[in-house]
Amino acid sequence: MAASVSRPEPKFDWFIPIDGDGIRLGTQQAERPPTFEYLRDVVQTAERLGYYSLLIPTRFVNGLFDEGAPLVETWTMATALAAVTHRIRFLIAVRPGFIAAGLFAKMVATLDQISHGRVDINIVPGGIANDFERLGVDIDHSGRYEQAEELMQSCRALWAGGETDFEGTYITLRGARCSPTPQGTPRFYQGGASPRAEALTARQADVYLMWVEPHEQIAERVERVSGLYHAEGRTPHFGLRAHVVVRDEVDEAWAMANDLIAYADADVLQQRRGVMVGTPMTGQQVQAQRVADHRVGPHLWNGLSTVRVNCGTAIVGTPEEVAEELFGYWQLGIDEFILSGYPHVEECERVSQDVLPRLQAKIAQAR
C-alpha cells in the first residue's frame, strides 16, 4: 500500500504484562510478578512517555511462565489502572460468552465514564486448545465467531441508547437498556488469521489486528482484508502487534533475544507445546512455525513462541534496524503499532527514546 497524505497519524501503543515480567521467560515463576504496583509502573511509564494506548490481554491461566504462576484478571486490573492514569487509553481484550451481553455493555459504559472515554475493546473469539473448557464452556470454533459478532452488534445497539431488542443464536435482549451510554462509542479491535476471522472483522471490527509476520505475508493479508472491508462498504484500519528486542549493537540484540528463553523450564516448555496440539488458531500455528535459530526473517525471531502463548515473534536489531522494519509495515498500511519488550518498564523507555523518533521521522518524510 503506497503512502498517502490522507492516512491518519500513526499510533504507538504498549502492553500490560498480566502474566508477569522479567528478562528470563518460561521459568516457573516470573522475576517480576504481575502485582498492581508493578503494572501501575508499566502503565504510568507508558503514559509519561506519550504512548497512545495500552493493550491488556485476556487469559485463563498463565501463558508465559508456569500455568500455575500468578495471573491477574483482565477487567479488574484494567479498571484499577484506569483510575491511576489520566490520558492513555486502554485496549481491553475480552472473550465473548463469559459475561452476559447486557451486563458487559454496561461494564464498558461504566469504565468509559470512569476513564472519561479511554476504553476500546479487543474481541478475542478464538482460543487455544482446551482453554475455554477449563471454565466449563464448550463451544466450537465457528460458534465462537458467531457469538463474537452478536456481542459487537448488541453492544453497539445498547450504546446507541433507548430500549433495545436483539434476537440472536447466542444473545437475546428484550427491552434492555444501557444508561449512561459511553462518552464516545468504544472501538472494537479484532484479530485472527482464519478466513472466518477476516470475514468477521470486515463486517464488524473497527480495527483489524495482526501479529507480526514477514512483510510479504502482511502485504497479502492487508490486501485481502481490505477487499473484504470494501465489499462491506467499510473503511479498513490495520494494527500490528509485535515484541521488540533493541540494543545498540546488532550482535547484542540477538544475544539478548536468545537469553530471554535460555533459562526456560522443561515443564513450561512442555505446557507450551501442549497448547499447539489440536489448536484451531491459524495465527498461533503461524507464530510457532519451526525454523533454524527461530529466525523467520532477517530481523524476525519467533523464539518467544516456545515459552509464550499467542504472539510469539519479535523484531530484533539496532534502533535503526527496528525502526526500518516497522516503517516497512507502515508502508503496507499499518497505522497502529502495539509494541512490547522484556522487561516492560525499561524497554518502554528504550523504544520511546531510540526507536520511535527514528520511525516517526521516516514516516514524516514519506508522507
Rank of each mutant, 00 (worst) to 15 (best):
P8W: 02
K11E: 13
F15E: 01
I16R: 04
D19W: 09
D21F: 01
G26Q: 00
T27W: 08
Q28F: 15
Q29T: 13
E37I: 07
Y38G: 10
V43Q: 01
T45Q: 07
E47A: 09
R48P: 12
R48Q: 15
I56Q: 06
G63S: 12
G68I: 14
V72R: 01
E73T: 15
T79D: 09
T79H: 04
T85K: 01
R87C: 08
R87Q: 08
I88G: 00
L91V: 06
I92G: 02
V94W: 04
G97D: 05
A101D: 07
A101H: 01
V108W: 00
Q113M: 11
R118N: 08
I123D: 01
V124R: 00
P125T: 03
P125S: 09
G127N: 07
G127H: 10
N130R: 14
R134I: 15
L135E: 14
V137A: 11
S142E: 15
R144G: 04
E146P: 08
E150H: 03
L151A: 12
W159S: 02
A160V: 07
E167T: 15
Y170W: 09
R174H: 12
R177S: 05
P180W: 08
T181W: 06
G184Q: 15
A197S: 10
E198W: 13
A199Q: 11
L200T: 05
L200K: 03
R203H: 07
L209D: 07
E213A: 12
E213Q: 14
E216G: 12
E220G: 14
R221F: 07
R221S: 05
V222M: 05
L228N: 03
Y229D: 10
A231D: 13
A242Y: 01
V244M: 13
R247H: 12
V250C: 13
D251Q: 15
L269V: 05
M276C: 10
M276E: 09
V277N: 11
G278D: 03
T282A: 13
V286F: 10
Q287G: 03
Q287S: 07
R295I: 02
R295L: 04
L300C: 04
W301V: 03
N302Q: 06
L304Q: 02
S305Y: 04
N310K: 14
I315L: 01
E320N: 09
E324W: 06
E325Q: 13
Q331T: 05
D335P: 02
D335C: 06
F337H: 00
I338Q: 06
Y342M: 13
Y342C: 11
E346I: 13
R350N: 09
V355Y: 01
L356Y: 03
Q365N: 13
